[in-house]
């Protein structure tokens, strides 16, 4: 079983914390959950547990970024991007301060805690902020790369993580790049453009589709902003149909971003959007709520079949 993304993140931030002393880590009383505590235990003098003060935490990170630090700000994605949003807009976006917002428990991964704790609008909110890079981690390997990139690139970033484990979906020698997406499975009838844990779900869906004679390409669009418009257009032209798959509202997130690219390019292909259909979720086992709200492999495969049938 693959390691939980949050565990991977905790180990990664601790690892890079050793290499770069400018890294500071802030958390809002959930460091045991986000796993930022792994850094805190190792480097207590560079770890700030700000209490349940998300807005102040973001502002403090802004001041530290202004002073040359590389602040990683941690809490549940839903709280970070709502309570922290004014500081994100004013300091990360408007002022360009290179804060690294780490959205823990992305999507519905905090399943049992229910709708109040699900992050299903975070990507849409962060994507509207000028100058803020937005990425979604799909497996352990890319999580490491995202943390490394956040340290190296002196720009504001929102990185969405997950509470749960994700099957590896990239080859060991994969080369990731900010602003790019990656084809993780070739196919010719339809392209499933996914992010986060939905990438491995899309691969499962593609396998089921293959059995039905549909050849589905799968793209990990790990960078939502800036988005790889070239790859989207190429896939749309080559396969003639597109499905977007995300653990997020179909409004304003990956689906919205892909639709914007296709519309702008004048590349009208049948497009289906898998994601939360403009509603809120509920408590339950993760697998069950993903199924109920149409974000499992079955739903992705059905959307792909529909897109192909519309050609």
């Amino acid at each position: 079983m693959a390691k939980a993304i949050r565990e991977v993140y905790g180990e990664t931030i601790k690892k890079y914390g050793e290499l770069n002393k400018d890294i500071v880590v802030l958390d809002a009383d959930v460091s045991g959950s986000t796993k930022s505590a792994m850094f805190g235990k190792e480097y207590p003098d560079r770890f700030y547990n700000c209490g349940i003060c998300e807005y102040a935490m973001m502002g403090m990170a802004a001041g530290m970024a202004k002073s040359g630090k590389i602040p990683f700000v941690n809490t549940f994605a839903v709280f970070l991007t709502t309570l922290g949003s004014l500081a994100a807009r004013t300091f990360m976006s408007y002022s360009g301060l290179p804060i690294k917002m780490m959205g823990a428990y992305g999507g519905m991964s905090d399943a049992f805690d229910g709708a109040t704790h699900h992050a299903l609008e975070d990507i849409a909110m962060m994507r509207t902020l000028p100058g803020v890079n937005v990425m979604v981690a799909s497996d352990a390997q890319i999580t490491d790369w995202m943390v490394k990139t956040a340290i190296e690139v002196k720009e504001p970033m929102y990185i969405r993580l997950s509470r749960d484990a994700a099957p590896d979906c990239h080859p060991a020698d994969a080369k990731f790049e900010l602003g790019k997406g990656m084809v993780v499975r070739e196919g010719s009838d339809v392209t499933i453009i996914a992010c986060g844990l939905m990438v491995s779900t899309a691969i499962t869906a593609a396998e089921a589709l293959a059995a039905k004679g549909i050849s589905a390409r799968v793209v990990d669009m790990y960078c939502i902003k800036p988005i790889d418009a070239e790859l989207i257009e190429k896939c749309a032209k080559e396969t003639g149909a597109v499905v977007t798959a995300e653990e997020h509202s179909v409004i304003g997130g990956l689906g919205g971003a892909v639709a914007e690219v296709l519309a702008k390019a004048g590349c009208a292909v049948p497009t289906e959007m898998v994601g939360m259909q403009d509603r809120h979720g509920e408590s339950g086992p993760y697998k069950d709520i993903l199924h109920k709200y149409g974000m499992d492999a079955e739903a992705v495969a059905a959307a792909a079949e529909k897109a192909v049938s519309r050609k």
């Binding site: 403090m60 802004a62 001041g63 530290m64 970024a65 202004k66 002073s67 500081a87 004013t90 300091f91």
Partner: peptide, 30 residues
């Protein structure tokens, strides 16, 4: 802060500048 020489922080949304100031002080103290 991006446009005007000498301006330390973009402020206006009331309250927001205060944690930024604290962050600067804490970085200096560290």
């Amino acid at each position: 802060s991006k446009e005007t020489p000498g301006v330390e922080a973009s402020t206006g949304p009331l309250g927001a500048g205060y944690p930024l100031a604290l962050g600067v002080a804490l970085a200096d103290m560290h």
